[in-house]
Nucleic acid binder design. Structure first.
Lengths: 197, 197
DNA sequence: CCCTTTGCTTGACACTGTGTAAAGTTGACA
DNA sequence: TGTCAACTTTACACAGTGTCAAGCAAAGGG
């Protein structure tokens, strides 16, 4: 639509990706990204009208580069609910650190920018639908814990796997990624899967 | 130290409390609070040097007014680990909505303001120590799930009970406060308590 | 009754970051 | 040679935080 040189656009996205990988993603400014892309701030606005839109585009770009969709899709090859749950949590454990920086930046502006909030929510639908498919399989499997409805279980799982949780457990509690994934697999199993009696 | 009229200070805190109770706490500005307190913006800065410090003071004020400490302390009267876990989750379920607004405001600026981040973390120590005492009792009780260490369980519980989770489940998933507390009690029990065999 | 201090007021302003506007430059292409 | 597209530079509006300086009004002591 409004974009000009697709090459420049690509350079911007690459620059944004690199910048936003770093620790302090929410502090990355438009000017920083422009400088890293080797263009002026105004040229940046020619390609992306707002910061939120640039961040969203970067998130999409990241997903594309990392083949996020394919990784999630691969989970549906699992043949039991339990396997799918594990596969999904594993996939998610790899996904979150990939988009962590951009996600943090987007989340940080969600209070002031409704578009950013909606965009991030939209982004998270991939994760949420992964939760849903895992839980549905548990349900049809008969392995879903009888004390929880499928709908409830989706919400719970989705919340357990939110970026915020990841953040809290890795940063404040010092958990490693591997620990986190393992622990969440165990937690989800204990909380969602019918106890074998 | 720097404070002048303690009466004015109190009026400010009351005004801040009221303003921050509302939906869009992170958007509440210094000027808004000053106006609500019936003073000028500059007078506000005479009492609280930064926005972060005002928010922290407001949080403390809220805790005091609501007798938060007493409510958490009452949990230790429980005589079994299970009871204490339930009592604590119940207390927490009442606490979070009380400080929700201020907490949201503080969390929203944690990326740009290190002081705000540290202050909120500090505030959350009350909740975290509640988690610790509940888990410790489960542990000495013999009712803690054998698959998880006590330290791990504290981290997990703390994360389950974070404001962000509350937020996600109530806002995005439409859960009510009562549902949330009930469901978290159940989840914590399934995830942390040894299965009766 | 004056005089000082205290607590606040008003008005101006620096600073940061986003986003807009306008005019100038450069290179490709016809 | 002329024109168009993509980008540049400079300037600026706007919002919000925090600072500074001068003024004012009331309380209280000499």
């Amino acid at each position: 639509m409004s974009s000009k040189n697709p090459d420049t656009r690509h350079r911007i996205l690459e620059a944004a990706r690199t910048m936003l990988e770093e620790e302090k993603a929410p502090k990355v400014r438009m000017g920083d990204i422009a400088k890293a892309a080797g263009i002026s701030r105004q040229a940046l606005y020619l390609h992306f009208p707002t910061r939120a839109e640039l961040l969203v585009a970067t998130a999409r770009f990241l997903d594309e580069v990392n083949g996020a969709d394919a990784k999630f899709a691969a989970c549906s090859e699992a043949r039991t609910g339990r396997e799918r749950l594990d596969a999904f949590i594993q996939a998610w454990g790899g996904y979150i650190p990939e988009i962590y920086g951009v996600g943090r930046a987007l989340l940080a502006m969600q209070d002031t920018d409704e578009a950013a909030r909606a965009a991030w929510e939209d982004r998270m639908q991939a994760v949420r639908s992964g939760c849903r498919s895992a839980v549905e399989m548990l349900d049809s499997d008969g392995s879903l814990c009888s004390e929880v409805t499928a709908e409830r279980a989706v919400d719970l799982l989705w919340t357990l796997l939110s970026v915020r949780n990841w953040e809290q457990l890795t940063q404040a509690c010092g958990w490693s990624q591997a620990e986190y994934v393992r622990e969440m697999q165990a937690l989800a199993q204990r909380a969602l899967i019918r106890a074998e009696n």
